[in-house]
């Protein structure tokens, strides 16, 4: 292993700067009053204020938006992991009729553009009475999070030797008992990475979330776009809301940072 030279350090520093500058600017805007933003350009906020955040936390529309978003993301993640676990086990341990085609079919759903499914989703969930509930968005997002979860979990499971299964059978474990007592604990990292990616895709998506919700279950990302058009652009509040939507992602990535590289090593995201 060679130590990174000067050129490498410069590349990494340059790239980090490129990643950080827009984020810094978002934070700087969030800490300025709208009057300061519009009237003069300051690289560093001279009179930082938390008023924009106070505005968000005192306004129920913003808070509800956050709660709604977290609700469908949580439902979606739980549902995806729950159905994907047995399926991924089947794919990693057995051959069965049509397994390869099934796997490919799942993958195509991960790759389909959400815009294609916009209209039928709207009609379907309206007909079922799920429109404007977190369930509609959670189920719609399953379109890409479930295949993703199967894909990632299958990779992690295939990394666990099959001898473990055989030994457990010899020890007299039934399949469910083996699965919950031995297999799942061994799979902790993989489940963490899966949760991370389900969270990520469901949290960042806007098109379906916007189409499938009305006033009741309006998610935070939609509150943001609508506020922009309604109140004549309060840049400070918008930036503060942006900062708040980035935070959950940072928290989640921090928890799975140790397993993340392994997840990517499988090349399955």
């Amino acid at each position: 292993m060679r130590s990174p030279g000067l050129a490498s350090r410069l590349v990494v520093a340059g790239y980090s700067l490129y990643l950080l500058l827009p984020l810094y600017w978002l934070l700087a805007m969030a800490l300025k009053s709208n009057r300061d933003i519009v009237s003069r350009l300051e690289w560093i906020p001279s009179s930082p204020t938390l008023a924009n955040f106070a505005e968000i936390f005192s306004n129920p529309v913003w808070l509800d938006g956050f709660v709604n978003s977290l609700a469908y993301v949580a439902i979606n993640t739980a549902l995806s992991v729950a159905v994907a676990l047995p399926a991924a086990y089947a794919f990693s341990r057995y051959r069965f009729l049509g397994d390869k085609h099934l796997f490919f079919w799942l993958l195509t759903n991960r790759m389909s553009p959400p815009a294609v499914f916009l209209l039928p989703f709207f009609q379907l969930y309206s007909a079922l009475g799920l429109f404007d509930t977190p369930w509609a968005v959670a189920l719609a997002h399953c379109l890409f999070t479930v295949p993703l979860a199967v894909w990632i979990l299958e990779g992690f499971m295939s990394g666990i030797p099959r001898d473990i299964d055989d030994m457990a059978r010899v020890d007299g474990h039934s399949l469910p008992s083996f699965f919950f007592r031995i297999f799942l604990p061994a799979l902790r990292g993989g489940i963490g990475v899966t949760v991370f990616f389900c969270f990520m895709f469901s949290w960042v998506e806007l098109l379906l979330a916007r189409t499938l919700t009305g006033s009741e279950a309006k998610p935070i990302v939609v509150v943001m776009t609508r506020t922009v058009s309604a109140s004549g652009l309060d840049w400070g509040v918008l930036a503060a809301a942006g900062v708040l939507t980035v935070l959950p992602g940072v928290v989640v990535v921090w928890f799975v940072r140790k397993h993340l590289v392994r997840g990517f090593a499988l090349g399955r995201v």
Binding site: M200, V204, L206, I220, V221, T225, T245, V246, V253
Partner: peptide, 8 residues
């Protein structure tokens, strides 16, 4: 981090 920022 950029991967986890909501698209809008």
């Amino acid at each position: 981090i950029p991967l986890l920022v909501p698209l809008n």
